[in-house]
Design a protein around this nucleic acid. Structure first.
Lengths: 201, 201
DNA sequence: AAGATTATCTTGACAGCGTCCAGATAGCAA
DNA sequence: TTGCTATCTGGACGCTGTCAAGATAATCTT
């Protein structure tokens, strides 16, 4: 993956930096992430990224936006396997949510509020994050038979479900749910279903 | 707070570094946190902290441990105001949880799984974190009339409640719950109670 | 086709960072 | 008083992000 190239121009440096960046992120975590390390990995000078992303935050925001797209894809994938019962579809999304978080913990943490991307508006990021949120809204709408945008209780369902799934995932990554981590795959999934369902009565 | 001193030795540098560190953390966030900045704030050489904490991670772990103690205190305080109904006491803890997170977002994030303190065992940190968890276990025990350590469903209650509160707080900090953030204080509290109670049917 | 313009990438510089190391200073024990 | 040890300083190192100036290639204009 250490891309040496023959021509002066790279070809698709932007995409290569995002890909390499996610590898570096997975290796070192958000806080150890370094722009120069990414540049080295792609085989490009240390200040080449600046032209595409401005500064380090720019690259991280692009990575986070990309992360949200794959996050949504992970939820859809699990949901597709769940059949067409609204409740099972909802649970499928939740399982995809947690699965993604465990598969790419540093990226997940980056997406949800790292200081390095905060407070700088980014259209692509916001759009991708919004799309993921919308997926959850759709789940609840299907389950309740009414749009959360038109029904306050349904919107409370959305917030409750989101909080539950997100908290579960985040505590898992923090290593604070040792009892759950000790469970084997299937038992853990069963446990998670049971927990998540509480939110939907 | 920029402590100039008269003697060569500081007196209580360790505590001063922790206090100054939390200010720096609040100002710059976990990822912008710098050891030298803390040293400057206390009026001490850039490598003085090393003697007390080893490296930057050492100081951050000590700060996180201190954070967990204040976190627990915040939950207790809110609980004490809630009277003696088990349900109200439980809600009080939850409100304290969120209140602490909003009052010290960077510290909260540090406590729950920053890369800069992870994977290095620390007795003081682990003990303080465990004490906070125990508080939650006690809440559920009081509510269910049985110890979660002896009853699987009660332990599932603990995990569900914890996930819910933690997710709510973390999403709030991430700025992802705009609808909730827009609510005025009392309305928000009412909403949160309603959400948290779902977990305890 | 040739020249000019623009996008892309390199190189070198700078200050700030964490950590290591040798030395200075002060409190304390004998 | 004489050591001894804990505490703190100052300088060095390699790493970092960002900026500015220059080199190279692709594209546009005519």
């Amino acid at each position: 993956m250490a891309g040496k190239r023959d021509s002066y121009h790279h070809g698709d440096l932007r995409a290569a930096l995002i890909a390499a960046g996610e590898e570096v992120l997975a290796d070192t975590g958000v806080e150890g992430f370094s722009l120069r390390q990414v540049a080295r990995k792609v085989g490009v000078s240390h200040s080449a990224p600046a032209h595409h992303f401005g500064d380090a935050g720019g690259l991280l925001r692009a990575m986070a936006a990309d992360g949200f797209r794959r996050f949504l894809a992970a939820m859809r994938r699990r949901q597709a396997e769940a059949g067409d019962d609204p409740r099972e579809m909802f649970l499928g999304s939740g399982l995809g949510y947690v699965e993604f978080a465990e598969g790419a913990p540093a990226l997940f943490r980056l997406m949800f509020g790292s200081d390095r991307i905060k407070d700088v508006p980014d259209a692509a990021f916001e759009e991708a994050a919004q799309a993921a949120f919308q997926h959850l809204v759709d789940d609840v709408a299907r389950l309740r038979g009414i749009s959360p945008y038109e029904d306050e209780t349904a919107m409370a369902d959305v917030m409750a479900a989101w909080s539950m799934v997100h908290g579960f995932a985040d505590l898992l990554l923090a290593g604070r749910m040792k009892a759950v981590q000790a469970m084997a795959g299937p038992a853990r999934e069963r446990f998670f279903r049971q927990v998540l369902l509480r939110v939907m009565t």
